[in-house]
């Protein structure tokens, strides 16, 4: 049984110009001990997807899903009060901005213990022990004395470690990390990711890592899901997606980063030209068509659902590889 199974998740937000469709019918699942990376550029709907899973969408947003199963139970229609019991307990989240995600008015000890005392036990001593244990786990030295410190006394890297410890306080089965390293120094980024992967392994949790950094994905993902303009354009086992990207968007993204052994010395790195389309109103066809080197008239109208190949590697290109190759030859 998957820890999380999502089928046709859609988020709509009414705006002045009409209805915004930032997330449109996306599906995925996460198993115990598995890492799913959701990849895409800014504005592709990946952060909203994570907030939708946690039930933390802005009030105006409308969430729909055919299935939203957590540990096999439907949570899509759970009342807020029951959802709050899952949040921070069995499923927890790590955010992008460690500098502002901790409350400046309370000590980190207070903020760590608070979530444990809410979900596990009121016992203060137990919460304190757990907080010290986890601070040590995330690599913070002299953990006991850190409990009395305020967020402003810690560096960004340390704060993100605290956020990770906080997410782990109640032994969650699923962690959603929304670009956890984007705001950090490059040297710290690697450490934090390493830590995250290590802890996931140790505690056998499901991990959804949301990122736009393909280098990160290559290192720790089991499964990859590439999102573009609120749709999944390609998904599959990480190796398959990296070794033979099918969708032109994925191919474009992968040309943007140097890959050891593949990218030739002196070769120019690629870029995906153009900008993401406006997602207000009725949408049809492939949203990538106005930036796609292989676009044809059919792309404006045809169905952009995923087509799954034999190894579970799926892509949504309306003109799949063989067709494009035939065209190039002719």
């Amino acid at each position: 049984m998957s820890i999380l199974e999502v089928e046709n998740l859609t988020v709509d937000i009414p705006v002045a110009a009409g209805m915004l469709h930032p997330v449109r019918s996306i599906s995925f699942s996460v198993e115990k001990g598995e890492t799913l990376c959701i990849v895409g550029e800014s504005g592709c709907g990946k952060s909203l997807t994570s907030l939708a899973l946690m039930g933390l969408l802005p009030k105006a947003a409308i969430r729909r899903a055919d299935k939203l199963l957590f540990r096999g139970e439907e949570i899509g229609d759970l009342p807020e009060r029951k959802m709050a019991h899952l949040r921070g307990g069995a499923m927890s989240m790590i955010f992008q901005e460690p500098m502002t995600s901790l409350n400046p008015a309370y000590t980190i000890g207070d903020q760590l213990m608070e979530v444990f005392r809410r979900h596990v036990t009121r016992d203060k001593a137990a919460a304190r022990d757990r907080a010290i244990y986890l601070l040590e786990k995330v690599g913070i030295s002299s953990a006991a004395s850190r409990l009395g410190q305020y967020p402003h006394q810690l560096s960004g890297g340390l704060r993100q470690r605290v956020m990770i410890a906080m997410a782990l306080m109640c032994e969650p089965e699923l962690i959603i990390a929304d670009e956890p390293t984007t705001a950090l120094d490059v040297t710290i980024q690697a450490q934090i990711l390493h830590l995250l992967a290590e802890l996931q392994n140790e505690f056998d949790m499901g991990l959804i890592l949301i990122t736009h950094d393909l280098g990160v994905v290559a290192r720790i993902a089991d499964k990859v899901q590439v999102m573009y303009a609120g749709r999944t354009v390609e998904e599959g086992p990480a190796r398959a997606v990296f070794d033979s990207p099918q969708h032109p968007y994925t191919q474009g993204l992968l040309r943007c980063i140097p890959i050891p052994g593949k990218t030739k010395r002196g070769e120019r790195l690629g870029a995906v030209p153009g900008i993401v389309p406006n997602l207000v109103g009725d949408l049809s066809g492939c949203m990538f068509r106005n930036r796609c080197p292989h676009a044809a008239p059919v792309c404006a109208t045809a169905d952009d659902s995923l087509v799954t190949g034999p190894d579970g590697h799926a892509n949504a290109c309306i003109r799949p590889e063989p067709e494009r190759v035939a065209e190039a030859v002719a």
Partner: peptide
Amino acid sequence: RTARAKGLS
């Protein structure tokens, strides 16, 4: 948002 993500009342 963090506080809400922690499931606090």
